[in-house]
Design a binder for these strands. Structure first.
Length: 195
DNA sequence: CCTACGATCGTCT
DNA sequence: GACGATCGTAGGT
């Protein structure tokens, strides 16, 4: 049985769909992943690593199997699984999942929300699992935070454009499990009027 | 079901 | 100083 880092070592476009159906656990709460997005290296204009290494995205340049967590919109956290070779900033954004364990704890963290929406969307998924910037760089093979992949994703894998990006919005680098209620709605990037 | 909009601040230019 | 890998709510269909 290969270790997590080995399973995540390949090209991000191959690894990303294999995360579907996998389970991310923190303490009592476990989420089964139903939707992810690939961010492929410095050449990907949609990636935080597109303009090179900074203090924020440093973890993306590290070894596979760690968590890259960023803070956005002044109030939300989103998390990625770092994949590929060290030095190559590839990552997979965890966009949505189904809470399969620790429902009570997840509900408490999420406030009023239907069970279906507990981890539906990247910021909600982080909130349900209690993930924030202090988890940036966390080892996903640790006891506190653990990612377990399955042999094959159940159900059918679909692909389409990534959500909320102005750049490279045409690339079909979002992957989800067909028919899952927890898959987030597709929203094209909002173009703000000039102020 | 849908579309529109404001919140709120770290990060990068 | 501008913008964002988002979300919750409000209001219409």
């Amino acid at each position: 049985m290969p270790g997590l880092a080995e399973q995540l070592a390949g090209p991000v476009l191959e690894v990303a769909p294999r995360l579907l159906g996998g389970v991310l656990r923190r303490g009592d709460v476990a989420v089964r992943l139903t939707e992810v997005e690939a961010y492929d290296g410095p050449a990907d204009p949609g990636s935080h690593a597109h303009r090179g290494r900074t203090e924020r995205n440093a973890v993306m340049f590290g070894p596979a199997g760690r968590l890259y967590v960023y803070f956005t919109y002044g109030m939300h956290h989103c998390c990625n699984v770092v994949v590929g070779d060290e030095g190559d900033p590839a990552a997979v954004l965890l966009r949505a999942g189904e809470v399969i364990d620790g429902l009570e704890v997840a509900r408490g963290r999420r406030g009023s929300s239907s069970d279906r929406d507990l981890a539906r969307g990247p910021a909600r998924l982080c909130q349900a699992l209690g993930i924030d910037r202090s988890d940036d760089g966390a080892d996903l093979a640790s006891d506190d935070l653990r990612l377990e992949l399955r042999e094959a994703p159940p159900g059918e894998v679909r692909t389409g454009p990534r959500v909320g990006l102005r750049l490279a919005a045409d690339l079909p680098w979002r992957f989800w499990l067909d028919g899952e209620p927890s898959v987030s709605a597709y929203r094209p990037a909002v173009v703000r009027p000039r102020r």
